[in-house]
Every structure is written in structure tokens, then in C-alpha cells.
Nucleic acid binder design. Structure first.
Length: 262
DNA sequence: ATGGTAGAAGGTCTA
């Protein structure tokens, strides 16, 4: 079973490229971020016609997350709960969707960027991460394979950045951001990419500007975190750089895990 | 310090 995460940076602009990649790569589940569409304007039919189950949590113009799945999705939850587990009523940004697919609890996460810093956007990022950590802990109590996949907007270590010195003031490298990412690992989640490839660069994002892709000036911010039950099933995890090199690409490229489930 | 690119919109905002 292959589960991929892909920040597609606009579903309408990426539609033909994404359909091609789905046909080539044949994932079971894709966690999408930055669909930049509402549920109503998501091009649902184009995917359904190709055999995909579609579940979205969108908003106008910004953010938005979704699932594409070859298998049924059950027990869907839209939006990240508040710290106490109750539905969060004052968060109007669509950044989280969760569901069960073939017995695996899967989340598609678009964590706030947090720039500029300091300021309200960085404060929002940190409180969102606190809510994610609290919810991730609740998920462990289900004792089912769980995959938290998405654009975390966190560069976990300097090795995950082409030029750490140039990013010291950025929200993606701040100690507060990195500590909260580590708190997910301390709960017991495994960073699948680092389980398979402990050292070396595994970039998943290259800026559209300054020839970043051509110079491989990338960062690793798209992650798949696995509960122990999912980690026990982990066969492989890779970055698929091919989509980033095509015409009209997203600035991100897919990262995927293969789990030992038929 | 500025601007460089891209997407959703059809004016700026976000990244």
C-alpha cells in the first residue's frame, strides 16, 4: 500500500500533471495540500472518472487539503480539534483532514508557514502545532496504524536545508518550530524518511525563484510521521523528484511510503 | 533594501 503526500499548490493549475502522475505512480492514497479551492470548485469529476475516491476540506483561494484514494474512506474528520479535543470553532483555515483507509488512520496536514516572524502568523503556527501534538497523542490511543502526512512547514535539521545560514531567521527553522516537530517524535511517531534514509539531503521543496530547482537549492518540509503500528509495516519511503522537473510543476514534489498491507 | 516567481482571482494576499 503506497501513501503519498503532495503539496500541489493549486489543484486547477496542476490537474493534468497530477492525473499523469497518478497514472504513472499508482499510489493507493494521496494526501493533497494547498488545493486552493473550495469543496464546490474542486475538480472532483476528473478524478472520479479516473477511479479515485475524493474527499476535500477546502476554502476559497488559500490552503485546503484533500484525499485521493483507490479504496473507500471512512470516519472522516475535517479540521484540527482544539487543545481539549473539542471541535475548534475559531479556526477558519482549512488545513487538516483525517480518515480511515484499509484500516490505516491517515491525515493530510497543511501546517501554517508562520512567516513573517515574529508576529501573529508565527503565533498561529505554534498554537496550531500544539493542537496537532495534542491530537496526535489522542490518535495513539486508538492503537491503529496511523500516518500523519503533509507539508509541515518545518525544516527539522540543518541537513534538511541547502543553506542553513540563509534560513536562520525563517519560521521553518526556529527552535520553537523544531521543538514542536520533535514533540511528535517523542510521542512515538517515526519520521519515515529518516527511518529509511538516516543521513543526507532528501529535499521535497524548491522555490520557484532564483533557479532553485536547477541548483538543487531545496528544503525538506514534507513529512510522513508513522505510529508504531504503521512503522512496523514500513517497507520504503522516497521522494519522487520526477514531477518537480516537468512543465508547470508545483514547488513541492511527492514523498511516499510503502506499507506492508495488500 | 528590492525584486525575483507562482496561484487564485480579477485586487491583493500568501508563500
Amino acid at each position: 500500500m503506497k501513501i503519498a503526500t503532495f503539496n500541489i499548490n493549486g489543484i486547477k493549475a496542476r490537474l493534468p500533471r497530477l492525473l499523469e502522475w497518478l497514472e504513472d505512480f499508482q499510489p493507493d492514497v494521496v494526501c493533497l495540500q494547498e488545493i486552493k479551492s473550495t469543496d464546490e470548485t474542486f475538480p472532483r469529476f476528473e478524478f472520479e472518472a479516473a477511479g479515485w475516491t475524493v474527499e476535500t476540506h477546502g476554502q476559497k483561494a488559500f490552503n485546503g487539503v484533500a484525499f485521493l484514494s483507490k479504496h473507500p474512506i471512512t470516519d472522516i474528520q475535517r479540521g484540527l480539534p482544539a487543545l481539549d479535543g473539542s471541535p475548534c470553532t475559531d479556526d477558519d483555515q482549512a488545513r487538516y483532514i483525517e480518515g480511515t483507509i484499509k484500516g490505516v488512520r491517515v491525515a493530510s496536514i497543511y501546517l501554517p508557514n508562520g512567516n513573517p516572524r515574529p508576529g501573529p502568523k508565527f503565533d498561529y503556527k505554534l498554537q496550531w502545532m500544539d493542537r496537532l501534538t495534542a491530537h496526535a497523542e489522542h490518535l495513539l490511543a486508538r492503537e491503529m496504524p496511523t500516518v500523519l502526512a503533509g507539508d509541515y512547514n518545518v525544516i527539522p535539521h540543518d541537513i534538511d536545508c541547502y543553506n542553513p545560514a540563509g534560513w536562520v531567521d525563517d519560521a521553518l527553522t526556529q527552535p520553537e518550530s523544531r521543538a514542536r516537530f520533535r514533540s511528535l517524535l517523542y510521542l512515538g511517531y517515526t519520521d519515515a524518511q529518516r527511518q529509511i534514509t538516516p543521513t543526507g539531503a532528501c529535499y521535497s521543496y524548491w522555490d520557484f525563484q532564483r533557479g532553485s530547482w536547477q541548483k538543487d537549492n531545496g528544503i525538506r518540509i514534507d513529512h510522513l510521521l508513522l505510529s508504531a503500528q504503521a512503522s512496523d509495516l514500513l517497507l520504503d519511503c522516497k521522494v519522487d523528484r520526477i514531477p518537480r522537473g516537468k512543465e508547470k510543476p508545483s514547488d513541492h514534489t511527492p514523498v511516499w511510503v510503502s506499507l506492508d498491507i495488500d
